[in-house]
């Protein structure tokens, strides 16, 4: 019983951390989408004309799924989308690192003084968050199975 409560507590903490990180990442980008568009273009994966669309939509998606992971109505899909975004960010950082780009990651907006070239730290951070997503999704899956089993 105690172990079960402990596990639930870990999952709750993981949810809160993920929500906090994604909401905190979204707010500065919503305030300065132009600077975020420049950060996106700096990765040289997509052109400036497409980076403006990313800068318009991605911060709102981060905000919605950041809050959504706490809401029972949309928490499973929010968790899955957070996982997909984190995997995408890890891929982008790997690509930028391999190409020797010395850029700010733009993860929390442009004016946070991030050390963009420290790709190891960025990837380690995202991998830890990805593990938290795995924990949350596993718990959601278990809850779903239990609900189906009791019906």
């Amino acid at each position: 019983m105690g172990t079960l409560k402990q596990k639930s507590l870990f999952v709750l903490i993981a949810r809160l951390v993920l929500a906090g990180v994604f909401v905190m990442a979204a707010l500065p980008k919503l305030q300065d989408p132009v600077a975020f568009a420049t950060s996106v273009a700096d990765f040289r994966i997509i052109g400036p004309e497409h980076s403006a669309w990313v800068a318009l939509g991605l911060p709102w998606l981060e905000l919605v799924i950041g809050i959504g992971i706490l809401l029972p109505q949309i928490r499973r899909t929010s968790g899955a989308l957070i996982g997909l975004l984190l995997a995408l960010f890890i891929g982008l950082h790997c690509s930028a690192w391999a190409r020797g780009l010395d850029i700010s990651c733009g993860c929390f907006g442009a004016e946070t003084g991030e050390t963009g070239s420290d790709y190891r730290w960025l990837m380690a951070r995202n991998i830890v968050l990805l593990l938290a997503v795995a924990l949350v999704l596993r718990q959601d899956l278990r809850n779903k199975r239990e609900a189906l089993g009791s019906n």
Binding site: G57, W60, L61, V64, I65, G68, Q73, I74, R76, T77, S78, A80, L81
Partner: peptide
């Protein structure tokens, strides 16, 4: 899942 995704897309 589709319903949840639609809600997230709509809010975004």
């Amino acid at each position: 899942l589709l319903r949840e995704f639609s809600i997230i897309a709509l809010l975004t």
